[in-house]
């Protein structure tokens, strides 16, 4: 970590000691502790439906910062080669190899299921909190015996509650809240591992409370700071896959 960044964090820490933290500051600290320059990941996604039937997807993901991401399905057969690209919250595309076609995902289609999972395209695009905006003050709470900040996030008019571990600024739990105040989805981040000063959650579990289904994303192989360029995230590379 650079000297300047350390000094800034130290000063920030002193400031917080006196005045407490805003939700946006907590979110910024979270991004600092969990966002790598880039990362290349192989992952398994397990989807468990209401009748406990389990479906598995294998995928490869390449990410740069907290906004650019290319995901390619390796299995099952009906999704093999399908790629998802996002470069900004408003820019998402899916590549369909059977048609040789790249299709923009826009509007409400971004709320549709990502590869049959409980994650929507929009949730996948913001899995690193790159597009979230926090508002208000951070409340100090306890979650399962762990001291945490509780902050409120807003994105495209949707509200979420995020618990952030106080000590390392790691995301613990995210609850998506419907307009009527109900919690519709709950995402739990676990099995954190540190690599190159960055904490990576090896398990992300999403409970879709509205549907009674669960999607668990387990990261198998993670490579950090491998030198992925910005120009990697193009339509042409969707054919190649992550």
């Amino acid at each position: 970590m650079g000297k300047i960044k350390r000094i800034m964090l130290l000063l920030g820490g002193l400031f917080i000691g006196v005045y407490g933290m805003s939700a946006q500051e907590v979110l910024n600290r979270l991004r600092n502790s969990t966002t790598a320059q880039d990362r290349r990941v192989k992952a398994v996604m397990r989807i468990t439906d209401k009748s406990k039937r389990v479906q598995e997807r294998t995928l490869r993901m390449v990410m740069k910062g907290d906004k650019k991401m290319l995901v390619t399905f390796i299995s099952p057969a009906e999704l093999r080669g399908v790629s998802f690209l996002t470069t900004a919250p408003e820019n998402m595309w899916v590549y369909l190899p059977a048609q040789g076609r790249v299709r923009r995902i826009s509007g409400s289609a971004a709320d549709q299921s990502f590869g049959g999972s409980d994650f929507s395209y929009k949730e996948m695009a913001s899995i690193s909190f790159g597009t979230s905006v926090a508002s208000g003050e951070a409340d100090e709470v306890e979650l399962n015996g762990v001291k945490a900040y509780l902050i409120t996030l807003e994105q495209d008019g949707e509200r979420s509650r995020l618990w952030v571990e106080m000590e390392r600024f790691l995301p613990l739990r995210l609850e998506k809240i419907a307009r009527d105040g109900r919690v519709v989805k709950c995402i739990v981040f676990a099995d954190f591992q540190k690599a190159n000063e960055v904490w990576i959650p090896r398990t992300v579990r999403l409970d879709n409370l509205a549907r009674g289904t669960i999607t668990e994303l387990k990261l198998l192989d993670v490579e950090i700071d491998v030198g992925i360029k910005d120009t990697y995230f193009t339509e042409e590379n969707m054919k190649k896959g992550a």
Partner: peptide
């Protein structure tokens, strides 16, 4: 046969293939 990154960002495909234009 498809060759990626002949130059950075330049891909060449030769053979029977599907190319799709249109939104």
């Amino acid at each position: 046969v498809r060759v990626y990154d002949i130059l950075p960002g330049l891909n060449l495909t030769a053979g029977r293939q599907k190319v799709h234009w249109g939104t």
